[in-house]
Amino acid sequence: MVYAITAIAILVSIAMALGRAILGPTSYDRILSVNAIGTKTVLLIGVIGFLTGRPDFLDLALVYALMNFIGTLAVLKYFKFGTLRGGLSRSSDKSS
């Protein structure tokens, strides 16, 4: 019961973040809401694993957290430098 209510709350929250992704004036707003949706999906996977009585879903949550992090950084780097080559730091800024 409590899992179902929490899952619904997470889904409503994801819908709100999706609204920001549709409205968002700049592309950075959209990246922010993609990142937020990713975090909430990790929570949703965990809660649904307990809702269906299969806590093995947590492995998926772990991997999803990893992918969310890497994906956000990759998209931001592409936006900032226009390429995925080279480092993220300021010293590599000069070479690109």
Partner: peptide, 29 residues
Amino acid sequence: LLMAGGLLLLITGFGLLRLPDLYTRIHAG
């Protein structure tokens, strides 16, 4: 704990829609 977490998530989603500019929305996220 789960109810508090769900409430906080709803506030987060609300904040993402409501706050005025990008930097303030980062705090909500």
